[in-house]
């Protein structure tokens, strides 16, 4: 018999830790989506194009600016001492991935803004000659290459940091995995590719995005496998944490919404789409995006619930 009685009843801590609600998973999802979009936009930016070709890289920066702003809005809502948020930008704490994240977000905005400037609508260009000159300069091959590299690197940093942010908090055994950074990056890439595939108007890009998304989904599945293998072969506390997803309270939502509906089913549908056995459908990309959101909700929620079991 083991009975534990405590007089502590602090909000958000007892009876189980729940410091982060919907805001953080939503931010991590939007951040991952933007990260994926930045990598893909950077990739397509450097491809040679015929005049008049419509490139998805012209649209993604605009949408990403909105998405990352919404994400940062969610992040701001989560803060308990909101008026002090500027303190983030008076320091860089090397041991804190959250501090890196704050500064990565500072880099994300100008990179996205320059990407958006490259593709200003025609009527803007005629009304604002200075903007037209800037857009033309950004379309020069050297500037395009630089912006493409910056977009890819910043996107990768943003995507990985969202996972490392959690895995650096050692008190939560479910998050104590080096696989979380790559997993959140690849999930962001699959989310970004699924969305870009929907909005792409160029058939060559559509086909490339579909193939890329299938590859990302396959890698994501493998990383989830590694994540679980890593936990289940570690110490008792990590095995207990993994049990939350393997028979515990988060099992159904994880396997049904994240793995089944979010990865396996869309991967199957998109494989058929890629081999032209079924027509293109919005169902698969929508499932990929919902799966990405569900992944963040499950990992954030279950991770907070996991704890060290020793007294």
């Amino acid at each position: 018999m083991l009975e534990l009685v405590t007089t502590r009843d602090n909000p958000m801590i007892d009876p189980a830790m729940h410091v982060w609600g919907w805001e953080i998973p939503v931010y991590l999802f939007l951040g991952g989506w933007v990260a994926g979009s930045m990598v893909l936009a950077g990739w397509f930016m450097r491809r040679g194009r015929e005049p008049g070709d419509r490139c998805v890289c012209d649209v993604l920066p605009w949408i990403s600016l909105v998405l990352i702003s919404l994400g940062m809005g969610a992040l701001f809502l989560d803060l308990e001492h909101k008026l002090y948020v500027w303190r983030m930008y008076l320091t860089l704490q090397p041991s804190s991935p959250m501090s890196w994240g704050g500064w990565i977000l500072v880099l994300v905005y100008p990179v996205l803004a320059l990407g958006a400037l490259r593709s200003l609508p025609g009527d803007w260009l005629t009304s604002w000659p200075a903007l037209a000159r800037l857009a033309a300069a950004l379309r020069e091959p050297a500037a395009t290459r630089t912006l493409s590299n910056a977009s890819i690197l910043t996107g990768i940093a943003l995507g990985i940091y969202t996972g490392v942010l959690l895995s650096s908090l050692g008190a939560r055994p479910l998050w104590a995995s080096a696989a979380l950074g790559p997993l959140f990056l690849v999930s962001g890439l699959s989310t970004g590719a699924a969305f870009a595939h929907v909005i792409a108007r160029n058939p060559v890009e559509q086909a490339a995005l579909l193939r890329a998304d299938n590859a990302f989904l396959a890698v994501e599945l493998a990383l989830i496998g590694l994540f679980l293998v890593g936990l289940t072969t570690a110490s008792a506390v990590h095995v207990n944490a993994a049990a939350l997803l393997l028979g515990g309270p988060y099992t159904a939502v994880f396997w049904v919404f994240v793995v089944g509906l979010g990865i396996v089913l869309p991967l199957a549908i998109q494989t058929l789409m890629a081999s032209h056995r079924i027509p293109h459908t919005l169902v698969a990309p929508a499932l990929v995006m919902l799966g990405g959101l569900a992944l963040r909700f499950v990992i954030v929620s279950a991770g907070q619930y996991s704890h060290w079991i020793s007294p």
């Binding site: 502590r8 602090n10 958000m12 801590i13 007892d14 830790m17 410091v19 982060w20 989560d78 803060l79 308990e80 001492h81 909101k82 002090y84 948020v85 303190r87 983030m88 804190s96 959250m98 942010l165 650096s168 908090l169 050692g170 008190a171 939560r172 907070q304 704890h307 060290w308």
Partner: peptide, 16 residues
């Protein structure tokens, strides 16, 4: 005066 209330420290403390 420096705390922004991000709660990372709450999540990182194994003792609650």
């Amino acid at each position: 005066e420096k705390c922004i209330g991000c709660k990372a420290c709450l999540a990182s403390c194994p003792y609650g």
